[in-house]
Amino acid sequence: MRERFTREKIHRFMFGSKDREGFLKQFVVYALLICIGFIYVYPILHMVSSSLMTLDDLLDSSIKWLPSSLNFSNYEQAAKSMDFWNALWQSIVIAGVPTICNLISCSVTGYALARYDFPGKKIVFGVIILSFVLPSQITMIPTYVLYSNLGILNTIWAFILPAMFAQGFKAPIFILIFWQFFRQIPKALIEASRIDGAGHFRSFFRIALPSAKPAFITVALFSFVWYWNESYLTELYVHGVYGQTEWTTLVVQLDNFAANFSSYQQTATAGATNLNESINMSGTLLSILPLLILYFVLQRHFVESIDRTGITGE
């Protein structure tokens, strides 16, 4: 009798009952999550550990994860060769200013699409979705020519100007986010403001904008991150293909890391070692470090962002 009772209990413990999840299932879920989570973090761990290694540690096959001593000279060399502080400042500018322009132009466009009916609205949507799907390479060459004609090639204006007119990098997504969000604001709210004597613009600035804070946060975060990580177009429009300008970003510097490092090596007076894995990894880590810090500080906003804006409504 007693034995059966315990067997039942064990069964219930392992496979769960109607209201409780079974231990087995939970165990599998946790195991999977931890394993896959490890795979996700693995490159970063690898980066951190090998960036701290000295050359001897790298060559020593018995050392796999933990370096024999903490060695920060790799960071020093990588930072110097990347011109870290300058590149960091310029990255922030190159990612930040177009983001602000994106916020303004995309919110206005999204509001118009959500609130007003005008002829040809469906076509506008079609164009927005098409411009999302089209690879940017197709417009790249004439745009390059256009910028050089306007005289804004290799300046930050090459990013700001399209962003001001809601044609920035991945702008269609942001327009759709704003559109989705403004649709959720009750129409009665806007109408009430109209009755109280506010005009179209006033009701936009006073009613719609303040209530769209979550959308603004989401768009700002993603726009910043995406501009920060864009290397292809930054190299083409802002940095210059042959590196003619002062403008550069951390990611671009990383892309040309080997060249940068060898030029640094020639100018450095002493203490420069050859380019090795550790220095590569410290360079990589340095270029994502600002974003990592941003992510850990603002992680709640990242994680909740898409929920709150309801981008997935369509």
């Binding site: 690898h46 991150v225 990580n229 292809y232 990611v251 890391f257 590569n280 270029s287």
Partner: peptide, 23 residues
């Protein structure tokens, strides 16, 4: 936190660097 990490890190040069180093 872990699973959304790629959202911010995924960019060409960084992936290229990681791949070339076998990570």
């Amino acid at each position: 936190l872990i699973f959304f990490l790629p959202v911010i890190i995924v960019s060409g040069p960084i992936l290229g660097m990681l791949n070339s180093q076998g990570a």
